[in-house]
């Protein structure tokens, strides 16, 4: 608890600058975070951008002091790199569709649950959230391997006649990725649902809407903001996936994150590695923004539809 004590001391020191204090005092309180974000978040990305515009070098990681768009040209004209980008987005889209569908359902189930059952459902979301990616990924291996538990069960039940390689393979990657991102989607949707008034759903049922109908007519339109946030978070994480494809994927399951890692740490080709990272970041940013607007517009159409 020494961490907490030390912290309390710092906060005490900050006390004179109470909340109603003038702008200057508030600024003083905000200064540490602003300085930190500028120094260790904004600055690194500027440097990243700079290095991605340097000439590649065979002697070092990049040719310092040079300017070149060659790294970008290299990436964008390489069939291999374009294939990696396509695979990343394919993985992102598939994982997002599955995750958001499951997440909406599960968030609704948590919202409707009560007491101990509700706590258990919430716990099942929070615990994986606070568990390292490594655990969340490798635990699937003994289950999905050709000699793993799932194959044993399916063979014993005569569903399969010979073992299927779920992992290392694409189905394993998707499953692992869905498992990793599901908690984020569920919580984003749940926090919107939990502000909703249940009697509105009862009113819909009372007026003749069946359960699925009342869900579609009343719950879904209100949950759209949560679903939009959940979708974007899920999509960003799945496109940028590293652990699941690296451990549960075959050699062909190569995402941009794996490629960047190997360019940076194995090939030591920083100009290509950083250029690739910048390209992916821009693509993700643009597609996430488009997705977010699309979902919210869809929500808007529901709002004013007949």
């Amino acid at each position: 608890m020494s961490a907490v004590d030390g912290l309390a001391g710092r906060v005490r020191a900050a006390a004179p600058f109470g909340t109603d204090a003038g702008v200057d005092r508030s600024l003083l309180l905000l200064f540490p975070l602003i300085a930190y974000e500028l120094l260790f978040f904004v600055a690194p990305f500027l440097i990243l951008l700079r290095i991605s515009l340097a000439e590649p070098s065979t002697a070092g990681a990049y040719a310092s002091g040079t300017w070149s768009i060659q790294p970008y040209v290299d990436v964008l004209t390489s069939e291999f790199f374009l294939g990696v980008i396509a695979y990343s987005f394919k993985l992102g889209v598939i994982s997002t569709v599955i995750t958001v569908a499951l997440g909406t359902f599960y968030a609704y189930a948590i919202w409707r649950a009560s007491g101990l059952y509700k706590s258990l459902l919430l716990f099942s979301i929070v615990l994986p959230l606070l568990t390292t990616l490594v655990i969340k990924t490798y635990a699937w291996l003994p289950l999905l391997a050709p000699t793993g538990t799932v194959n044993d069960l399916l063979l014993a039940a005569n569903v399969l006649s010979s073992p299927v390689q779920f992992a290392p393979n694409t189905p394993g990657v998707v499953l692992g990725e869905v498992y990793i991102v599901l908690p984020y989607a569920v919580l984003a949707i749940y926090s919107v649902l939990s502000t909703m008034d249940w009697t509105v759903v009862e009113a819909a049922r009372d007026l003749g809407a069946s359960r699925p109908r009342s869900f579609a007519e009343v719950v879904l339109p209100q949950a759209i903001p949560g679903i939009a946030v959940g979708t974007v978070v899920t999509f960003a994480w799945s496109v940028g996936a590293y652990a699941a494809p690296a451990l549960l994927g075959a050699g062909s399951d190569r995402t941009f994150a794996i490629e960047v890692e190997s360019q940076m740490l194995s090939n030591f080709n920083w100009s290509v590695g950083t250029a690739f990272a910048v390209i992916m970041l821009v693509l993700m940013f643009v597609s996430s923004l488009a997705l977010f607007n699309l979902l919210n517009r869809w929500g808007g159409e529901v709002e004013y539809g007949a």
């Binding site: 974000e37 496109v239 940028g240 590293y242 994150a257 890692e261 950083t274």
Partner: peptide, 23 residues
């Protein structure tokens, strides 16, 4: 400030790792 502080959670950790490694 709040959205800027939130941004790192949305950027793939690999990209963050690369940017910080370089920096």
């Amino acid at each position: 400030l709040a959205p800027v502080a939130l941004l790192p959670l949305l950027i793939p950790p690999v990209v963050l790792g690369v940017a910080l490694l370089v920096y």
